[in-house]
Computed example of a mutant assay.
Amino acid sequence: MQTLSAFDSRLADAAGVSVASSTEIHGGEGAGLPMLIVENALGRAELTLQGAHLTSFVPAGGRELLWLSPKAAFVPGKAVRGGIPLCLPWFGGHPEGKPAHGFGRNQPWTLVGAEALSDGTTRVTLELLPNDATRALWPHDFVFRLAVTVGSALTLALRVEHRGEVTVPFSCALHTYFAVPDVTLADIDGLDGCTYINTVGGANTRHAQQGTLRLDAPTDRVYLDVPAVQTIRTAQGTTHIESDTRSAVVWNPGDFALNIADVGEAYRHFVCVERGDVFDDALTLAPGDVYEKWLTLSFS
Rank of each mutant, 00 (worst) to 15 (best):
G32E: 02
G32I: 04
P34V: 09
L36T: 03
L36G: 02
L36R: 03
I37V: 15
N40F: 12
N40T: 09
A41V: 15
G43D: 12
E46Y: 14
L47R: 02
L47F: 03
T48E: 12
L49F: 04
L49P: 03
G51P: 06
H53A: 09
H53Y: 05
L54A: 14
T55I: 12
T55D: 00
S56N: 12
A60N: 12
G62F: 13
G62T: 15
E64D: 08
E64M: 03
E64T: 01
E64A: 15
L65Q: 10
L66Q: 01
L68N: 03
L68Q: 00
S69K: 05
P70I: 02
P70F: 10
P70E: 02
A72Y: 05
V75F: 08
G77K: 01
G77M: 05
G77Q: 10
G77H: 03
K78T: 13
K78N: 04
V80F: 04
R81N: 09
G82E: 10
I84L: 00
P85S: 13
L86S: 01
L86V: 15
L86P: 00
F91T: 01
F91K: 13
G93K: 12
K98R: 12
K98Y: 11
P99W: 03
F103I: 12
F103W: 14
G104T: 13
N106K: 06
